[in-house]
């Protein structure tokens, strides 16, 4: 589903990833880990075309993401759900509208949007906060909304960048539960985290970035 072949990326001549090769299979739930600044977020950005590699090839669902044309990027991104580290929720929109926005971008009609948003709000246990604005929510609640927004479109791939960064163990568990749930529905899930407790004992593949490439793979 996701394939990196000898991918290199640098910022201001400072290499972040070097000759990185890896793959994530369809329907898999995998983790990417490594110390801060190892390039985990960059790797995810390369997948959703927010960054372009300097060298190498990235293939996502048989599409060459590394050479994706500008005009094809919106449609490509609509196949991917992203849980951003900094949430990227719109503060002037309610929880409901933030989630609905993802479906509006998918050109869905209002009726379908309403039913799908209600369903996803139930799944993330946020129905009671539907009319609230993001600044009124706790970190854990905002994280749930971001997950809801990422999963409401039923994407092929779900990418999560440090999804439990600021959460307490209780919220951490519940977010991970959501990811497993999404994965069981067939979505390929790739989680970038430096939080060992998230993947240890998960029985999932963990790709460790060290010295700018995938150093080793372990089972969590």
């Amino acid at each position: 589903m996701i394939r990196f072949s000898n991918v290199s990326k640098s910022y201001d001549k400072e290499p972040i990833l070097k000759n990185l090769t890896m793959s994530v299979e369809r329907g898999e739930l995998a983790f990417i880990t490594g110390p801060s600044g190892a390039g985990k977020s960059t790797l995810l950005k390369l997948i959703y075309c927010s960054e372009r590699p300097d060298e190498g090839q990235i293939t996502v669902a048989d599409q060459v993401a590394s050479k994706m044309k500008q005009r094809l990027i919106p449609r490509y991104r609509r196949q991917i759900g992203v849980v951003f580290q900094d949430f990227k929720l719109l503060n002037n929109k309610t929880v409901y509208d933030n989630i609905a926005l993802a479906l509006r971008i998918h050109q869905m009609n209002s009726k379908a949007i309403r039913s799908q948003v209600i369903n996803v709000l139930k799944e993330v246990n946020m129905t009671h906060k539907a009319k609230e604005y993001p600044p009124c929510l706790s970190g854990g609640e905002q994280q749930r909304v971001v997950v809801a927004r990422a999963m409401v479109t039923k994407p092929m791939i779900l990418l999560a960048d440090e999804p439990t960064g600021n959460l307490d163990p209780e919220n951490e568990k519940s977010i991970m539960h959501l990811f497993r749930q999404i994965n069981t529905m067939g979505t390929t899930v790739l989680i970038a985290t430096h939080n060992e407790s998230l993947y240890s004992g998960s029985g999932r593949r963990v790709l460790i970035i060290k010295d700018k490439y995938i150093d080793k793979e372990i089972m969590g």
């Binding site: 919106p74 449609r75 991104r77 196949q79 719109l90 926005l101 971008i105």
Partner: peptide, 15 residues
Amino acid sequence: EEVETLKLLGATKMF
């Protein structure tokens, strides 16, 4: 920031 988020969510230029 809103525009950036829309772009990341896959919104078209027209949207």
